[in-house]
Simulated assay, not measured.
Amino acid sequence: MTDQREIPRSTREAADWLTRLNDDKLPDGDIEAFSAWRAVPENRAAYERLEDLSQSLRLLANDPDIEAVAASAMTGTTKPKVHFIGRGRRGYFVLGAALAAALIGGVSATLVFRPPSYSTGVGETFSARLDDGSRVTLNTDSRVRIRYSKGERRVELVRGQAFFDVAHNAARPFIVAAGDTETRALGTKFEVRRTADGVRVTLTQGSIVVTDRDKPSATWRLVPGQALALSPRSVAAAKPVAVDAKASSSWTTGDVTFQDVPLSAAVAELNRYSRRKIVLADGVDANRVVNGVFSSSDTTDFVDAVTTLFGLDRVAKSNGDVELQPKVRRAS
């Protein structure tokens, strides 16, 4: 077996993170710790190497030779082996699952073949390259599960919001399931947001078809610059509407863009990114319209702007929240 002491520390830690990030019950604090750890260039490189290795082996999950090696690795009955697998004119050298587990210092054989999932905590974003070359970017407090097969590429948006840059493959459609909604694409860029009220799909590039299990006979085909909102109460009346797709996806670069958005909705959107909330006190006109581009990681500029524009006072609360109150007029 490979001596663990011969494996660089960054690789051992990367293997540990690769395992933990596939845990459905990963605490938000672990996501924050992972982001800090991954900010170190050596750690980032080690993690991406192991992620690529895991993805490559996962593509071979149905190969009988690889399955046999994986089974042996899990029972500890064999030493690490290297297999040569022929594919017609193509032959390629494949690391057996047991050897892969040894090389990456602790990633179990079961993890190599387990469909991956990715998640973020509050205030976090995360981007990952998928097996087929597509890329998924998660917004704050979001989670996806990846389920690829020979006939299709399926992603489940469990919660939150994700942006997809899909690699074209006409033989394997790319499908994003969010609740009862399915979005089908071949090669395109779009985002899906899932909330308690329903699902919203926004198309940036290419073409997508959206369906809903509650109304299987109806489909909606979107063109770039359109969005579709579906909820259990409005499926029958739903139709694509024109939007600023670039503004909608500005969160992927760390910004939030508001265009004629009510103050209450702008506050609710920014509150998604922080555990310290902005609160509107009684007497504040929540329907005042907000326009502008603000950082999702720092609400200072937003609070400065609305207090000045709308004549409000800010009050810091003991729990870290900021309450916006009507400005008190002092007697002259």
Rank of each mutant, 00 (worst) to 15 (best):
T181A: 07
L230C: 02
D260Q: 11
L186G: 07
A242H: 11
G105Q: 00
L59Y: 10
G96N: 02
E48C: 05
D63W: 01
V290P: 02
N287E: 15
T2Q: 14
I146F: 09
T125D: 03
I31W: 12
S264E: 13
D304G: 06
L53Q: 06
L57D: 05
P80V: 07
R275A: 10
D131M: 14
E152D: 08
R9H: 10
D197K: 05
S149L: 10
D260F: 06
D313A: 03
L53K: 07
R87C: 06
N287H: 13
L99C: 11
F174G: 03
R154K: 11
V223M: 14
G29P: 08
S108V: 01
T307Q: 11
T78W: 04
K150V: 12
T2C: 08
H83M: 15
W251N: 01
G187C: 00
W220H: 05
R275D: 11
R200G: 05
I66H: 07
F190P: 07
P41T: 10
D165Q: 12
S149M: 06
D65C: 00
V306S: 07
V293T: 11
R153S: 00
A100G: 02
E269V: 09
A178H: 07
G283K: 08
L312Y: 02
D255Q: 13
K189Q: 15
N43W: 03
L111T: 06
